[in-house]
């Protein structure tokens, strides 16, 4: 297992170099992709999952199944059932806690609208993670290739590479990118608290952002909780979703719950007319 993955790594690096050397003509037109950096990481033996039914366990099993495949054969998608969303913003906060997001940085706000006139009124709640667009306008604009689409469809930001120019922020039609100003929630209080100084686990790394270190000074966004996926876990906003309204899985797996869900007439994607090809689907 290990050697095989190591090989894949090696070739990934070569492919990448090739892309650079061949130059703009080749690399420019295609959506930029990087091969699985560490397939080994995701295929380490993970502890067994418990028995049981329910959508969460099912999706988690499907996730484990997908992890058995090479990275480029996975196609992560998220499905949000707006009929089930109760507008609680647990996902918003779960995400913030999971990724240790500072003030001003939010990956999954839940937008609320009131519709209709008294007494025929209702409210709609629309959670908005990053759409992990297949044609992501945020990617080509980056002057340092710090953001790119991974083979599994996730649009990643390399915090070590990002120079913090924020061009990508302007390019995203979904306001899915926010800038880390290096601030903390307990600024201007008697004492900074430990939950804020604990490093972020994003991308399977340990990001200590104290003293202006990355990701402070970087643009940040939802990355489908790659670090959790690697650990065989569903994204935080999926597991914490109070309305059981958020689904996640591998689109390439035709038996998956998500594949089942999006084969219905009540599916939409946001701002599809922008040609972004979002990988987040909404059920109405």
């Amino acid at each position: 297992m290990r050697t095989k993955n190591a090989q894949r790594n090696g070739s990934a690096r070569r492919d990448f170099l090739k892309a650079i050397l061949v130059g703009p003509a080749l690399a420019g037109g295609l959506p930029r992709q990087v091969k699985d950096p560490e397939a080994a990481e995701t295929q380490r033996s993970l502890p067994d999952l418990p028995e049981g039914d329910g959508p969460i366990l099912r999706m988690q099993r499907e996730l484990r199944r997908a992890l058995q495949k090479p990275l480029e054969q996975r196609r992560w998608i998220m499905v949000i059932d707006l009929r089930k969303c109760v507008g609680c913003s647990a996902c918003t906060i779960g995400c913030i806690a999971e990724n240790r997001l500072p003030p001003g940085v939010v990956y999954r706000p839940v937008v609320e609208e009131e519709i209709g006139a008294y007494p025929h009124v209702t409210r709609r709640f629309t959670p908005r993670p990053c759409m992990q667009c297949d044609n992501p306008p945020c990617v080509p604009v980056c002057p340092v290739k710090a953001t790119y689409k991974r083979p599994d469809g996730i649009v990643e930001i390399n915090y070590e590479q990002c120079i913090g120019c924020r061009y990508c922020v302007t390019a995203c039609p979904y306001s899915a990118r926010t800038f880390d100003f290096g601030e903390n929630y307990t600024d201007r209080t008697p004492k900074r608290q430990p939950y804020e100084t604990s490093p972020s686990p994003e991308y399977g790394r340990s990001w200590d952002r104290t003293n202006g270190k990355s990701p402070a000074g970087n643009v940040r966004k939802c990355q489908f909780c790659i670090h959790r996926l690697n650990a065989g876990m569903l994204p935080a906003c999926v597991t914490t979703c109070v309305g059981l309204a958020t689904y996640f899985g591998d689109w390439n797996d035709h038996d998956s719950l998500v594949a089942e869900l999006i084969g219905k007439p009540n599916v939409i994607r946001l701002k599809e007319e922008m040609g972004t090809q979002p990988k987040v689907y909404y059920l109405l």
Partner: peptide, 25 residues
């Protein structure tokens, strides 16, 4: 050991409980 990788749902207040405990005041 098996349950460790399975997270349950929680409301936003529950998530924010950390801040009630680690409250500078």
């Amino acid at each position: 050991f098996k349950a460790a990788a399975v997270d349950g749902l929680l409301c936003p207040k529950g998530q924010a409980g950390i801040q009630s405990a680690y409250d500078p005041y």
